[in-house]
């Protein structure tokens, strides 16, 4: 296993992230509400660096009785990362595109051990 210690968990902002590269493989590691998530930094759309874009809460539309729109609001819970190439937005907790769940980032194993964040990097060329 190609495991990397990328530093103490407390050093991550929450929400926050680190994108790391080793042997040409790039992985984005995210912390949201104390939990860690990691994905390959390759967008399923066109291969852009999806983990290096803006983190922003999901936009939702409030619908009242009889289908009346009450306008747009930001989600209080769902944080997305946006691919900087064309704006695909992925839910950081699931890695899935917010508008089409079949489009998703490839998950990478991450865990906290003795207070450090350990990432299992995919083999180069994958």
């Amino acid at each position: 296993m190609r495991e990397f210690n990328i530093g103490p968990a407390f050093a991550f902002a929450d929400p926050g992230r680190k994108v790391i590269e080793a042997d040409g493989v790039e992985v984005g590691v995210f912390k949201v509400d104390g939990e860690f998530y990691a994905y390959q930094n390759i967008c399923p759309h066109n291969g852009g660096p999806a983990c290096q874009g803006k983190m922003i809460y999901k936009v939702e539309e409030l619908i009242a009785e009889h289908g009346v729109s009450k306008g747009l609001v930001f989600s209080k819970t769902q944080l997305n990362v946006t691919c900087p190439w064309h704006g695909y937005e992925f839910d950081i907790r699931s890695g899935r595109h917010q508008g089409d769940g079949s489009v998703r980032l490839a998950a990478v194993k991450v865990r906290v051990e003795s207070g450090d964040v350990i990432v299992t990097m995919p083999a180069p060329g994958l």
């Binding site: 296993m1 190609r2 495991e3 990397f4 210690n5 990328i6 680190k18 994108v19 790391i20 590269e21 080793a22 790039e26 930094n41 660096p49 290096q52 874009g53 803006k54 900087p84 450090d116 350990i118």
Partner: peptide
């Protein structure tokens, strides 16, 4: 068996 975990890596910055 686990390999040592303190390997070198590079940090990439957010695209701005």
């Amino acid at each position: 068996m686990h390999e040592p975990v303190n390997r070198p890596f590079r940090e990439l910055q957010e695209i701005t």
